[in-house]
Design a protein around this nucleic acid. Structure first.
Lengths: 173, 173
DNA sequence: CTGCTAAAGCAAATAATTTGCTTTTAATGA
DNA sequence: TCATTAAAAGCAAATTATTTGCTTTAGCAG
């Protein structure tokens, strides 16, 4: 049933957009009664957050070459493009609508950490930092700028941040 | 009228919390009709976002001593405490609920920039970076961790980030 | 097979939202 | 000053969403 409702939400979102979307609409499309949805999710916001979290895998389709000064900026650029895109922003919107201010809005960091770790593992150099440092240095600026500035991000933002990060951890860092 | 409604929202929030809050409740408290509120704000979420943005001044009650390695970490620590507090998180919650995914959720950056600039202006040293670099380095990690990790932040997070930032811009940076 | 529990349906009751129309308010110009 | 008018607010009916009590179904254990 959860499946049918999730599918209905996804279908309705790209047919009519996420703006007018209501619980009764989703229920009708999924072939269930509204009360079923209300009892399981309480809210349209909660339901959309749930759906958004399913589509939360950020893979690394890039083959690391083993040099951090190449691999990390390359990944950063791809990550930024992914998050600053229409679907990326929509995912963040849905996820943040359900945020209650206390617990984490979603496990976004857990989704990127493995990719960062795998890049570091593939590096033919000693790694002097951990994944969370990379998150602070490149993921954080991307996400906050998406939320708190207007218009698309500077194209090189994440790439440059990653390059600078690697540079300062390579030499004297 | 806007005044009365804003006041009603603020009052009701700390009497009954923000969770159950409805437009008709606010209307009754403010002495207006619900339709007035719906026409002006469309949503409870939009209204709460509007109210949250009024309380958006982050002042710097600290007297800069003129050394960036002291002033910037001191400010960063205070900023983190402010944002990671219950009211700080509540403000972010309210502001992000109204976010549509395209335009900025609120002018959070414009609220901190002047403070950062004034600290830099008070510095008895040449400043080799701009305010946005500070935002990326210290504000961004604080905000993203509030949103995407559980529990309170490491107490020294922003302070250390600011100190490291100043350090790398002082010597070889 | 029978009883039990959790989930879903159904429909009535309640509450929120929208809407058309009327009234007030405040500003403007004769 | 007083009419004129446009924007904002009130009011109430209509619509829509949400909640709730109760019934039904499906899956599972004895």
């Amino acid at each position: 049933m959860q499946e049918a409702v999730h599918a209905a939400v996804t279908a309705l979102i790209d047919e009519t957009g996420r703006e007018g979307l209501t619980v009764p609409q989703v229920a009708a499309r999924a072939g269930v009664t509204p009360s079923t949805i209300y009892r399981r999710w309480t809210d349209m916001a909660t339901l959309m957050r749930d759906v958004a979290q399913r589509n939360l895998r950020v893979d690394c389709p890039l083959k690391p070459c083993g040099r951090l000064s190449v691999d990390l900026p390359a990944w950063a650029e791809m990550y930024q493009e992914e998050m600053d895109s229409t679907p990326g922003r929509a995912m963040m919107r849905d996820v943040l609508r359900g945020w209650d201010g206390t617990q984490k809005a979603c496990s976004l960091f857990d989704a990127v950490r493995p990719t960062i770790v795998s890049i570091c593992d593939a590096a033919g150099e000693p790694v002097t930092f951990d994944a969370d440092a990379v998150i602070d240095a490149v993921v954080a600026p991307v996400l906050t700028r998406i939320l708190f500035t207007d218009g698309p991000l500077p194209a090189a933002l994440a790439r440059d941040a990653a390059a600078a990060f690697v540079a300062r951890h390579a030499s004297g860092g």
